[in-house]
């Protein structure tokens, strides 16, 4: 086995302060706290943090550990030394090459940047779907029907602007009616934006801080443009 010379550790992509090697007591509290312990052979919060502290961070970045970890933060919460495990594991996602981000997270993030929602639903399709679901709400007899209901789009000066989760218009459109029925019963003044309405911020999950920020700015921009003071972000 090759001896690790701690003075010759490569420059950390994770920008982890070298003193972290001493902060972690290797007590294993994080391991006990973590429901993902045992799911990826060789890796758990402690071995991952130790490997990073010892200059072997690329092994952690290349492993599937940071992606099987759900970033729940229980390890960090329980750590008696205050090690920022959650932050470190998310950073491992950030520094991975974008074409190696597993699953559809990066693809969806790029789709969102380009088209305004993770699944690339066109504006006109969305407007017609909202109108059509609104008409169903007026007649729906499974639950109480809601005559007078429609989905207010781009309505200025509403009390609340609501983001939407693209999975719902795409696959489970009726699930949007739960929230709408509450607004109808409360006679709430609300609206949605016709563009950039996505509420699911996959940049958060893929570790893409720049895209995450763009998404947040869009949500804020919609509220400012329509002069709405409250953003409801049901994610």
């Amino acid at each position: 086995m090759e001896v690790l010379d701690l003075d010759k550790r490569p420059k950390s992509k994770l920008e982890l302060d070298p003193k972290w090697a001493n902060i972690c007591y290797t007590c294993g509290t994080c391991v006990s706290a973590c429901p993902a312990t045992g799911l990826v052979p060789g890796w758990n919060p402690r071995t991952a943090l130790r490997a990073i502290a010892l200059g072997l961070e690329q092994e952690v970045i290349d492993s599937k550990w940071p992606w099987v970890c759900t970033l729940c933060g229980r390890c960090q919460f329980k750590c008696p030394q205050g090690a920022e495990l959650l932050k470190t594991f998310r950073k491992c996602r950030t520094v991975r090459d974008r074409d190696k981000v597993p699953g559809s997270l990066h693809k969806g993030t790029m789709m969102n940047i380009e088209k305004g929602n993770n699944l690339g639903i066109p504006r006109d399709d969305m407007l017609h779907l909202l109108a059509s679901l609104g008409a169903e709400m007026e007649e729906d007899d499974e639950h109480a029907s809601c005559p007078g209901f429609y989905v207010p789009v781009d309505q200025e000066d509403a009390n609340i602007i609501v983001t939407m989760n693209s999975k719902e218009p795409f696959a489970e459109p009726d699930d949007m009616k739960f929230l709408w029925r509450i607004f109808h019963a409360a006679k709430e003044s609300w609206t949605v934006s016709s563009t950039n309405w996505e509420g699911v911020n996959w940049g958060l999950f893929s570790g893409d801080d720049e895209s995450m920020k763009i998404q947040v700015e869009r949500v804020l921009e919609n509220a400012r443009r329509l002069k709405v003071k409250t953003i409801l972000y049901p994610e």
Partner: peptide, 15 residues
Amino acid sequence: NLCCGAGGGAWAGPY
């Protein structure tokens, strides 16, 4: 009250 296991994007992931 543990994480459900699909957090952090795991629901959209391949694992």
